[in-house]
Design a binder for these strands. Structure first.
Length: 638
RNA sequence: GCCACCAUAACUCAGUUGGUAGAGUAGCUGAUUCGUAAUCAGCAAGUCGGCGGUUCGACUCCGCCUGGUGGCUCCA
């Protein structure tokens, strides 16, 4: 038998007979390693431990500690779940696909009779545990296409047949564990005994192949980890996310509500929420003015003809609200750009005026499909911190970089990390190929120059231009789409925007659409979860609350309150005849940063005794000192 | 929009295998004047999301609608 050379990661080279498997190689090192080996990477291709090696090459054994391990276990665990479901429900259910995803995996099933409910989970989990305990080998089989089609057809697995028919290859790999066999590229873990910690998490509908014209499948989401401890940590994290849910906190902190009589996706801002919004809006105006933006305001309604001219009517109509009065059609604005272009057009512009940066806290309405609405994160009426930068082509680069640095500053103030993505031309779009090319390059060059990493999303741009999307990462490391920068050559063309160049000729400017936090509504939703409702002092709708111990201090407490409010501290007063502990508890639950306790001592010394939200206290200090302290902290965005 | 599920007092939730409902918190009244996360007692509070249907009788069963939840598709 021919001999081959296998190079291991430590650089050592060993001779083996051709046909040796990664498992055999592991065994030649130690029995323990062989037991631990889940798969292997041979010449950079992932393979099963039982795959015979026919030629020399580099071999890396994959064990539970390898970075690839978790994803593999999850993918294999999806097969385990499918096996369990088939054993429980047999031919009532057809299998489709089941990949690993972030934090777990899912499997999509088709069934006419069986409707999965969460009550089925314990049963399925028990079956999975039984199959895992049986420690069955998971074996790779190779079949011809026709053979595989015949086999799945005989089993009544129509979806598998369809998948294979669309595959452009003559032989296919399948994986078998016990009586269950599934089409799969692999690789998989060697035995079902590997699965030690898994849990079914939720149930959802999903279209076959993600297309809403196709049949609706039943998706079971689940997760799997290397061990029970990691699973527990993950479940605790989910629990933490639930506690921070902005819909729950929004109600508890009395920030906002929705009302079915008003309509879905339309927010009612209660006093504290409206104050929080106002603080953010004031911050936005100040930061934009600092960076050379001009504040403008456009109307809510614009004539339908204008939306036809812009392309919104053709490309965005299903998301818009229209109305007709005096036989004139109007569209409620879903974007702010048209008004900004018309402000630009209100008088002749020179190259000397550019760039012009129009900023508007623009309230827009978009008819989002009912099923996508979600608290503040997806609504139908929202306010964007929107700006349109109209500039010469040679200014694009500097302007895009300016926006990116603006994003960096703001993300830093709120304590977010972020990642960036470049999205290119979508199917449904307007404008010439040359302009798209130019615009995409401009964005890409700016990204490359700044040197921060980014990903490319093919075909994910806006209909009028490519875009850079910024995803903020919150305290739980979850990503949120907020900022976006879009480069647009088309709308300036359609609206015939011009400027007079140095040469005295008319030239076409470029327009950058950009938002920094995006929608104020969404951003506040994200902030609530990011801070778990405990806003930093500068954002807190209520920064301090004055608490008297008994009625004896009421008069002085009132004085302190008046004095603080007069110098701009957002302060409340609790004079109720309740025990101090009770008042503290309420202020604590309301997540107010500072409680100012006033007893006989403070009246005597003309001071206040501050208590922090975290339970710590400061020595008593004068009201003016406290006000100065708050002002300094807030000015530093703390 | 699609699939599944849910809707009981202001909030969180219990309950009736079809005979019209409770608890805690909040609210109100009274007592208590208290030093860093819940003082005590009493009172009041719901067309059981809306509209139809089945039934002697519907909060409970069925249908439609509205709103929400988890996803899918779509998106700031």
């Amino acid at each position: 038998m021919a001999s081959i050379q296998i190079e291991l990661p430590d650089g050592s080279i060993k001779d083996f007979d051709a046909g040796v498997t990664p498992h055999d190689v592991a065994l030649s090192i130690s029995e323990g390693l062989a037991r631990q080996t889940l798969a292997a990477r041979f010449n950079d291709v992932l393979i099963d431990t039982t795959r015979p090696l026919e030629q020399s090459g580099k071999l890396l054994l994959i064990t539970p500690n390898s970075p690839e391990a978790l994803e593999m276990i999850r993918h294999s665990c999806a097969h385990l779940m499918a096996q369990a479901v088939k054993e429980l429900y047999g031919n009532d259910v057809q299998v489709t696909i089941g990949p690993a995803i972030k934090d777990g995996f899912y499997y999509d099933f088709y069934s006419e009779n069986k409707k999965f409910v969460p009550e089925d989970f314990p049963l399925i989990e028990a079956k999975m545990e039984e199959l895992a305990r049986a420690d069955m080998p998971i074996e790779r089989k190779v079949m011809s296409r026709d053979e595989a089609i015949a086999m799945f057809r005989a089993k009544g697995e129509d979806y598998k047949v369809e998948l294979i028919e669309d595959l452009d290859q003559e032989t296919l790999s399948l994986y078998q564990q016990g009586s269950f066999i599934d089409l799969c590229r692999g690789p998989h873990v060697p035995r079902t005994g590997v699965f030690k910690a898994f849990k079914l998490t939720s149930l959802a509908g999903a279209y076959w192949r993600g297309d809403e014209k196709n049949a609706m499948l039943q998706r079971i989401y689940a997760t799997a980890f290397l061990n029970k401890k990691d699973l527990k940590t993950h479940l605790e994290r989910l629990e933490e996310a639930r506690k921070r849910d902005h819909r729950k906190l929004g109600k508890e902190l009395d920030l906002f509500s929705f009302n079915e009589d008003i309509g879905g996706g339309l927010v009612l801002w209660h006093p504290k929420g409206a104050l929080l919004r106002t603080i953010i809006e004031d911050f936005e105006r100040k930061e934009h003015l600092k960076r050379g933006y001009d504040i403008v305001v456009g109307p809510q309604l614009l004539k339908t003809d204008l939306w036809k001219m812009s392309g919104h009517y053709d490309n965005y109509r299903e998301n818009m609200y229209f109305t007709e009065v005096d036989e004139q059609g109007y569209g409620i604005k879903p974007m702010n750009c048209l008004a900004h272009m018309l402000i630009y057009k209100a008088k002749p512009r020179s190259y000397r005026n550019l760039p012009i940066r129009y900023f508007e806290l623009g309230t827009v309405h978009r008819h989002e499909k009912s099923g996508v609405l979600h608290g503040l994160l997806r609504v139908r009426g929202f306010t964007q911190d929107d700006a349109h930068i109209i500039c010469r082509p040679d200014q694009i680069d500097a302007e895009v970089k300016g926006v990116m640095s603006f994003v960096r500053d703001v993300a830093g103030i709120f304590g977010f990390n972020y990642t960036m993505e470049l999205s290119t031309r979508p199917q449904k779009s307007i404008g010439s190929d040359a302009d798209w090319e130019l615009a995409t390059c401009a964005l890409k060059n700016a990204l490359d120059d700044v040197g921060e990493p980014y990903e490319i999303n093919e075909g994910d741009g806006a209909f009028y231009g490519p875009k850079i999307d910024v995803k903020l990462k919150d305290a739980l490391d979850r990503e949120w789409q907020c900022a976006t920068i879009q480069c647009d050559f088309t709308l300036p063309e359609r609206f015939d925007l011009t400027y007079t160049g140095q040469d005295g000729e008319k030239h076409r400017p470029v327009m950058l659409h950009r938002v920094i936090v995006g929608s104020i509504e969404r951003f506040i939703g994200v902030l609530i979860e990011h801070y778990a409702g405990s806003f930093p002092l500068w954002l807190s709708p209520v920064q301090a609350i004055v608490l008297n111990v008994t009625d004896r201090q009421a008069e002085y407490a009132q004085q302190v309150f008046d004095q603080l409010r007069a110098v701009g501290v957002r302060v409340e007063l609790d004079l109720r005849n309740e025990k101090l502990g009770f008042k503290i508890r309420e202020a604590q639950v309301a997540k107010i940063p500072y409680m100012l306790v006033i007893g006989d001592r403070e009246v005597e010394d003309q001071t206040v005794a501050p208590r922090f939200r975290d339970g710590s206290t400061l020595d008593s200090l004068s009201v003016t000192d406290f006000a100065a302290f708050v002002a300094a902290e807030a000015a530093a965005y703390k």
